[in-house]
Structures are given as structure tokens and as C-alpha cells.
Design a protein around this nucleic acid. Structure first.
Length: 422
DNA sequence: TCTGGGGTCCTAGGACCC
DNA sequence: TCTGGGGTCCTAGGACCC
């Protein structure tokens, strides 16, 4: 049996931990640049707000209903997530962290007779320790445990923990569960399925294996097996990322090459830092730029360029040079650009780099330089030493976050002060 | 006026090999 | 006029996830 622990309205719940005045009230959290809704509490959902809606379209609803708005504070959410994962792993053993707000765990350590009660206790323990409510689902496969967690979240009678542990319960759960909400079935597949009259997870699971395989290939077949109680989705441990991407939409569109180069250089520097933090090097990079897809009145343009490096590297200096080479090849003047980004791929460990016979770079020297810059920046602030092309105000690319909450748990300046005097 | 970011996996099809 | 068969590897793009 697999257990899944899934935080309720995670980002919004994190914000409420330090704002107890907001309990029971509608809260939404916005994406980067305060663009769209990415998370919200039950109370906000019941106002008809939905994930992905642009903020500017719902400003009226927000005002009329006194909804509290936050910009995304990933530092805070990351720290709260680590704390929850730590408790979960202390209580259940090895866990598979699937995303910032959910993790699979093993239920073997719990008593079978009192499983439901013990899961409820686990849930209370996390809530007491961290202040974030979680829902727990248990089932014979990961997909079924996800379905169970949905029921745990939405049906109060389950008290936050739902178990699918018999054929009868599996059937009932699947019959009540819309196929589009099944893990691994997205918008595109749902459209196809509905065409064939498949509406619930049960309908899907009753189709023949060969038909599913023919129509939906390997991913569809995996989902089908999992719904039928045959585990086949494994969470691979990927301690090192296989690709590292940094991209941003700009607050205002830009057409100037130098501005675009500045953005690409900054995103490259930030990707390179992530690369070094996981002790990796990369051998390929892709730069992409695009116009504003919501403005049909303007010329639409998208282009990307991949560059393969002769020798894998983690050097910001080298990567910026290649990134700008790529940018030059795809830049088209006259286009109003809305977004740029960089993806580092062909990532491997920095402990076994394949050298190149014709490489003239003094890599030892380059590494010493990089290490020195990193240590100065980590001590004195992240942009103290940077490359000229990154401009004098790198903060410019970190975009507007008008409703940002303090970093209560990671910045000593932001720690709450409590006044005990009357 | 204002519309997110960062990942993984799979497949088809092209390029290339003998 | 008629022009094979069986592979591997790579890549772009689609679909999905949170």
C-alpha cells in the first residue's frame, strides 16, 4: 500500500501560518510578476475564483469580498515544505518527495486494524508542528492513493484521511471520480476520452488493455494498470536535475537587443549557480525568446537556439558567452518581446568531465575565479560581483511582487517579534 | 495596462550506419 | 523503367505534472 501526504492549498496555507487573522478567510497567491492565481484557500474557491485566472481580471471580486492577496514567496514555501517532509519521514521512514507539497510514504509501519486513526493522528501531528493542513490518501497504487487523497480533502466525513483497501472501495471511488482528475490524464487526453464516452475513472479502467495501449500508448497503459490496482508508476530518485531552466516574462515588452541580452545574461547566471549548487556541469544550452502571445495585434515570434559545448562547464562566464552567441542568431529586430529564457541540458557530475584535446581554456584558473566570485557573493549579497552585461540593476529582472510576505523562517530580519507586555 | 515558472517522460521522424 | 532491409541515435515537440 502507498500513502500520499498532500498539503491543502499549500502556498495559501503557508501564508496563513504567520497570519492567523486570515483563518477561515479567502486568500489567494499569485504567480511571478503577480500574473495569475496559482493557489487559493477553500473560501476563495467558493467565490468562483479559479487557478490560472489573470489577476487583473478578478480585481473587482478581490475588492468586494475582502480577499487577501500574496505574491509568491518561494523562500517561505520551500522552507515550510522541508519542515513538513522532515516530520513525515521521521514518522513513516523513507519518503518519495514528489513535489513541493506532496510526498509518498510507506504505510507498513502502521497497525492495519487502526490505520485510519493513525493517519488522522499523523495529520494532526503535522498540523500541530507546522500549521499547514494536509490530506492523506492510501491505496494499492500511487494513482489510487492520489484519488484517495482527493476524497480525504473534499469529504469532511473522512477527517482528512481516506483509504482504498478493498475491491468494493476501489470500485466506488473510481465510479465517483471524473477521469480528467486522474493523475496522468490531462486536458488533451480527456477530450479524446469524452469522445469515446469515458467520463469516470471507472469507465477508463473497464476498457480493454489493448485498446488503451493502442490509443494512449505507454503513459495511458500505465494509468490504466494503476487504476486496476497494478503498481507500475515508480518515482525515480533524481537527486541531480536533468535540465535547469530560468525564464521570466517581462513587466513591459522590449524590442531592444541589449535589453534582451541583459535578461538572458542574468537568467544564465542564475541557472549556472543552480548548476554549481548541485555539483554538475552542462554540455548544452538553449536560449529562447518570444513575443506576447496574448497580443494578436502584434507580430508573433518564437525562436530558440541550442548550442552544444565542446567541454561541459559550470562557468557563468563561459555560459553567458555561449548564450549571447545563441541569442544573436535568433534575435529579430522590430519584434516586441515578452519573455526570454535559458535551459541548461546534457547535465552530468562535475567529478568526471570529458576533456577536449583542442580546448585552450585554462579551466583550473576559470574554476578558481568562479569559486572566488561565488564565495564573495554568498557572503556579501548575491549580485555584488557580476558580469557587465548583466547591467547595474539585476533586480530589474526579479519583477514586481507587490504583495510579498516576509521570509519569516529564513531571514533573521523577518522573524516575528512578540510583545509579551500588556 | 495587466495573462507564471520549472520540471519529466514519451514518441515520431529524420539522419545516419552497414 | 526498375532502386533493400534492418538497425541506432538524436531531436523537436507534445503531453503531462505541480
Amino acid at each position: 500500500m502507498y500513502g500520499l501526504c498532500d498539503c491543502d492549498s499549500f502556498f495559501a496555507s503557508c501564508e496563513r501560518v504567520f497570519r492567523p487573522d486570515l483563518y477561515g478567510k479567502p486568500v489567494v497567491v499569485l504567480s511571478n510578476n503577480d500574473g495569475c492565481i496559482v493557489a487559493m484557500t477553500k473560501e476563495a474557491k467558493s467565490l468562483g475564483l479559479t487557478r490560472g485566472t489573470p489577476f487583473f481580471q478578478i480585481k473587482d471580486i478581490i475588492q468586494q469580498n475582502n480577499v487577501t492577496v500574496f505574491s509568491s514567496n518561494y523562500t517561505l514555501y520551500g522552507d515550510i515544505s522541508n519542515r513538513i517532509m522532515q516530520i513525515l519521514s521521521e514518522k513513516t521512514g523513507d519518503i518519495d518527495i514528489y513535489s513541493i507539497d506532496e510526498a509518498f510514504f510507506c504505510v507498513d509501519g502502521f497497525k492495519k486494524e487502526s490505520l485510519h486513526e493513525e493517519l488522522i493522528n499523523l495529520r494532526s501531528f503535522i498540523y500541530k508542528g507546522i500549521g499547514v493542513p494536509v490530506s492523506i490518501g492510501v491505496g494499492p497504487t500511487r494513482t489510487l492513493s492520489k484519488i484517495a487523497s482527493h476524497f480525504a480533502k473534499n469529504i469532511p466525513g473522512y477527517k482528512g484521511a481516506c483509504i482504498i483497501d478493498s475491491e468494493e472501495r476501489r470500485r466506488k471511488a473510481l465510479q465517483l471520480f471524473p477521469v480528467n482528475k486522474v493523475w496522468g490524464i490531462g486536458r488533451h487526453t480527456t477530450k479524446q476520452l469524452n469522445y469515446y464516452g469515458i467520463i469516470t475513472a471507472w469507465d477508463f479502467s473497464k476498457r480493454s488493455k489493448s485498446w488503451i495501449q493502442r490509443e494512449f500508448k505507454k503513459p495511458g497503459l500505465q494509468t490504466w494498470k494503476e487504476l486496476n490496482g497494478i503498481p507500475c508508476k515508480e518515482i525515480e530518485e533524481l537527486p541531480e536535475k536533468q535540465s535547469i531552466c530560468t525564464s521570466r516574462s517581462f513587466e513591459h515588452m522590449i524590442s531592444d537587443y541589449d535589453m534582451l541580452a541583459e535578461s538572458v545574461a542574468n537568467f544564465t547566471a542564475s541557472s549556472a549557480l543552480k548548476l554549481r549548487k548541485q555539483h554538475s556541469v552542462c554540455q548544452s544550452l538553449t536560449v529562447f525568446i518570444l513575443s506576447n502571445q496574448h497580443r494578436e495585434d502584434l507580430e508573433q515570434y518564437y525562436n530558440s537556439k541550442q548550442i552544444r559545448l565542446a567541454v561541459p562547464t559550470d562557468s557563468t562566464m563561459e555560459l553567458i558567452q555561449f548564450a549571447l552567441t545563441a541569442l544573436k542568431l535568433i534575435y529579430k529586430s522590430g519584434v516586441m518581446y515578452k519573455k526570454s529564457g535559458i535551459i541548461l541540458t546534457d547535465i552530468c557530475s562535475n567529478s568526471c568531465i570529458q576533456q577536449n584535446l583542442f580546448d585552450h581554456t585554462d579551466r583550473q584558473k576559470l574554476n578558481r575565479l568562479t569559486e572566488t566570485i561565488d564565495s564573495i557573493n554568498s557572503e556579501h549579497g548575491s549580485h555584488k560581483i557580476r558580469f557587465a552585461v548583466q547591467s547595474t540593476s539585476p533586480k530589474h529582472w526579479n519583477l514586481s511582487t507587490e504583495h510579498l510576505s516576509p521570509c519569516y523562517t529564513t531571514d533573521i530580519k523577518d522573524v516575528l517579534m512578540i510583545n509579551c507586555h500588556k
